[in-house]
């Protein structure tokens, strides 16, 4: 799932570590999220959306299941 985490983080001049601390996750998780290698849980997605002041739908772009 694509997301705008890196875009919004850079726009707000927040480092990966600062974002990780704010969301109570490791920096590695932020890196994996930004690279699209890991999909956040609903709780983490909600926390991230709250942090950036956007909705979950604005932050995460659901492209639909390719195997359906």
């Amino acid at each position: 799932m694509k997301n705008k985490i890196q875009e919004l983080r850079k726009a707000r001049k927040v480092t990966q570590q600062e974002l990780a601390d704010a969301l109570s996750v490791t920096r590695q998780t932020i890196i994996s999220l930004e690279n699209g290698k890991y999909n956040a849980s609903l709780t983490l997605a909600h926390k991230a959306a709250q942090f950036f002041g956007v909705t979950i739908e604005e932050l995460f772009i659901f492209e639909g299941e390719e195997n359906l």
Binding site: S24, V25, T26, Q28, T29, Y38, T43, L44
Partner: peptide
């Protein structure tokens, strides 16, 4: 404590 908490509860690490 916060570092320990994050290391043990980080959802990606658990996954």
């Amino acid at each position: 404590f916060k570092d320990w908490y994050i290391r043990n509860t980080d959802e990606r690490a658990v996954a």
